[in-house]
C-alpha cells in the first residue's frame, strides 16, 4: 500500500513535468499546424544551458530558467521567420513542417554533440530527499514538478486573460473564422511560436533533474513522449495536455510497481494513446469528433 501511494505521488510529479514538456508543442501545433519534431531537442538544449551554468559558471542550474527565456524568445523569433512563412504556403503544412523540423532536430543534435560531447551529463541534486505524505522523494523531482505548476498557470493566464491569448484560442479553434473576425493571425503565430520554444527550453532546464541526466539523443524520445501527451489530451487544447501528462505519468509510475509490468513501462503511454484515440478519435478533450 505504501508502495502504491509512492507510485501515485511519483506519477503526479512526473505527470506535471510531462504536461510542461507537451504544452509548448501543443501551442505550435494548435496555432500553426506545425509538427515540431525538434521539440525534444529544444528541451534538451534548455537542459544543457542549465548544465553549463551549473558546471562552467558554478551557479544554480535553475538560473537557466530566467536566462533561457529571452534567449529562447529570440531564437524562436528567428526560426519562425526563417521557416514558418514558407511552411504556411506549402501545399500541406503539416507534412512540410515535419520534414523541416526533422532537419532542425538533426542540426540541434549535431550542435549539442559538438559542444557537449556524446556522454550523458547529470546535474548535482539540489538538496536532500523531500518528504511528502510520509515518504521520501528526490528533491530534484519535487522541485521540477513544483516549478511546472506556475509555468502551466502562466500559460493559462496568457491564453485566458489576455487579448492576444483570446485571439490565439480563436485561431486554434478555427482559423478561418478567426481571420474573418479580424484576428491578426501572423502576430498570434509569432508569439505562439516564440512562447512554444521558450516553454520547451524552460522545461528543458528541468529535464536533467527528472531524467537523471541528458545526452544529445535524449531529445527524440522526449519528442515522442510530448506528442503522446498532447494527442491524449487533444491537439490544440492546453488544458488537455496537462491531463494527458498526468495520465501518462500515473500510468507509467504504477506499471513500475507491478511484477511483470515493469518491462512494459515504455509501452504504457502508447497503449494509453491508442485506447484514447480509438474511443475518442480526437483525444479526450477534442472539441469535435473529426470526420472519419
Amino acid at each position: 500500500m505504501q508502495l502504491f501511494e509512492y507510485a501515485i505521488v511519483n506519477g503526479v510529479l512526473f505527470g506535471l513535468f510531462y504536461g510542461f514538456i507537451g504544452i509548448g508543442l501543443n501551442l505550435l501545433f494548435g496555432v500553426m499546424r506545425l509538427v515540431n519534431l525538434a521539440h525534444g531537442d529544444l528541451v534538451v538544449f534548455g537542459g544543457y544551458l542549465g548544465y553549463s551554468l551549473a558546471v562552467d559558471a558554478h551557479i544554480n542550474s535553475l538560473w537557466a530558467i530566467p536566462l533561457s527565456i529571452p534567449a529562447a524568445l529570440v531564437f524562436g523569433f528567428l526560426v519562425y521567420h526563417a521557416t514558418v512563412p514558407r511552411l504556411r504556403r506549402a501545399v500541406d503544412t503539416e507534412t512540410a513542417s515535419l520534414i523541416v523540423f526533422f532537419g532542425i532536430s538533426q542540426v540541434l543534435e549535431a550542435l549539442m554533440t559538438m559542444i557537449y560531447g556524446a556522454n550523458q551529463v547529470t546535474l548535482p541534486s539540489p538538496g536532500g530527499p523531500v518528504s511528502l505524505f510520509g515518504q521520501d522523494y528526490p528533491a530534484s523531482v519535487v522541485i521540477s514538478a513544483a516549478l511546472s505548476v506556475p509555468a502551466l498557470a502562466l500559460l493559462y493566464l496568457y491564453l485566458y486573460r489576455t487579448r492576444i491569448g483570446l485571439a490565439t484560442r480563436a485561431v486554434m479553434a478555427d482559423e478561418d473564422e478567426a481571420v474573418a473576425s479580424g484576428v491578426r493571425v501572423r502576430r498570434v503565430a509569432v508569439w505562439a511560436f516564440m512562447i512554444g520554444v521558450a516553454f520547451a527550453t524552460t522545461a528543458g532546464t528541468l529535464t536533467a533533474f527528472m531524467l537523471g541526466g541528458i545526452n544529445p539523443t535524449t531529445g527524440s524520445g522526449l519528442t515522442i513522449t510530448a506528442f503522446t501527451v498532447i494527442i491524449i489530451g487533444s491537439l490544440g487544447n492546453p488544458l488537455g495536455t496537462v491531463v494527458g501528462g498526468l495520465l501518462v505519468g500515473l500510468a507509467s509510475s504504477l506499471s513500475l510497481t507491478q511484477a511483470y509490468a515493469t518491462e512494459w513501462t515504455a509501452v504504457v503511454p502508447y497503449v494509453l494513446l491508442l485506447v484514447v484515440v480509438l474511443v475518442r478519435p480526437s483525444g479526450l478533450f477534442g472539441a469535435t469528433v473529426r470526420r472519419a
Binding site: 501545433f29 509538427v35 503539416e94 515522442i224 506528442f227 503522446t228 494527442i231 491537439l235 515504455a266 509501452v267 503511454p269 502508447y270 497503449v271 494513446l273 491508442l274 484515440v277 480509438l278 478519435p281 480526437s282 483525444g283 473529426r290 470526420r291 472519419a292
Partner: peptide, 19 residues
C-alpha cells in the same frame, strides 16, 4: 486506426508500431 485523421492518425500508427 483508419478512422482517425491527420496528426492523430500519424501518431497513433507510431504508437502502434512501438507496441
Amino acid at each position: 486506426l483508419l478512422r482517425l485523421s491527420g496528426a492523430y492518425f500519424a501518431l497513433a500508427t507510431l504508437a502502434a508500431s512501438q507496441v
